Amino acid sequence: MVTCLGDLEATCLALLEGRSGVAPLRLGDPGKLGVTHGYEIQDGRPGSRPRLAGDWLADCVAEALRDAGVDPARRRVAVVVGTGLRELRGVEQWHADGTPLHLTQLHFREAVRAAVPEVTEVHTIANACAASGYALALGADILELGDADVVVAAGCDTMTESMLTVIGKVTDGTSDMVRPFDEDRPGVLLGEGAAAVVLERPEDVPEGRPTLGVLRGVGLTCDAYHETAPDRAGIVAAMRQAHEYAGTSPDDIGLVVAHGTSTGLNDPTEGAALLEVFGPDGPPVTAVKGAIGHTSGGSALMSVLVALTAMRAGTVPPVVGLRSPMPEAEKLGLVRGAPLRARPRLAQVDAFGFGGVNAVTIVEASDD
């Protein structure tokens, strides 16, 4: 994983310390965009190169396969990439100043195969902010059907002036930080980066090889309730479907990593959905966007990695940026101010996108 705070280890450490990667925006003209801050990756790439999410993605996919000890030359490896914007930033640079861009770069096949040429297939799913949750679900189906021996589920997005303009148009005033579930939440800000995990059937994992955890199930709904506004019923349906597929009940869940966008509609809707499913005595709830921003297509998978790391470490990070919980979230078990010492076995991870595209993931802690 790579975010504005660094790799997975660095990002989780910052979350535990309550640090945020927000900074004054470098991309575009803040006065025209209506956005002054963001969660950008400072990677020092030459300005003559298009700023492509595929570069981060390729690094994450290759590293995930190395960490898992999987040789794609010896096994059938499929890659499923979830994204919200694909390579829109590259298109913007091409349009603005003629920065070279090939049509093949708009799909992530070329980027992935440049790093791992032996993979058998690369799929791109453009499912808004739930995209990498959908990638997990499709990856599990590919394994279940026997169409691959190993699947890399991934997600990525980079910041674009087009999306920043949208944020600037729909936010009242200007936001200096994402504050999930806060009474005075100022609105969402964009982040960027990529994440990747390797999926294997349990019986195919060599004895003694450590694993991050177990994917128990992913609930998917596409309620098409509104172009941008979330629907509580659609979100609840995704949560209940996730538990049905995972063979779990709400009482089994020891941690929720919420979507938590800091927006006027998402946070109260998600809060109400969580209360409907879990009741007022539900599990601890945290969220990561105050630290890394809204990473669009990669956000679901990044939250999954944070959940698995927290369960392994026995420490749940607080909701960075949260000061005073909004009334709709006061009955949630929000982790505030400091990390929570806990060792849950099961976690629920929420991800919701425009158009009612929802993905809710249930993961189990590993015994390794």
Rank of each mutant, 00 (worst) to 15 (best):
D267A: 09
T286E: 03
F108Y: 15
L88Q: 14
P318I: 08
R45L: 15
D368F: 07
V61H: 00
V198I: 06
P206L: 02
D367H: 13
G290R: 08
G213L: 12
L8T: 09
A111G: 03
P339Q: 00
A10T: 12
P318Q: 03
A111F: 10
A130C: 10
L8R: 12
V22T: 10
L215H: 12
A148F: 04
R75G: 07
M1D: 14
V70Q: 02
A195P: 12
P180G: 05
V77N: 05
A111Q: 02
A242S: 06
D367T: 14
H123D: 14
V22F: 07
G271T: 04
A126H: 02
N266F: 09
D252G: 05
G34V: 03
V236W: 04
L265Y: 03
G337N: 06
H107I: 01
T120E: 12
L143D: 02
E270F: 08
P50L: 01
L145N: 08
S324G: 01
P50E: 00
D97H: 13
A111K: 02
A238Y: 01
P100N: 04
V91E: 11
R74F: 08
L33C: 11
L138K: 03
R209D: 10
V198P: 13
L16S: 08
A307L: 09
A237S: 08
H226A: 14
G353S: 01
D141M: 07
C222P: 05
A351S: 13
E183W: 08
M159W: 06
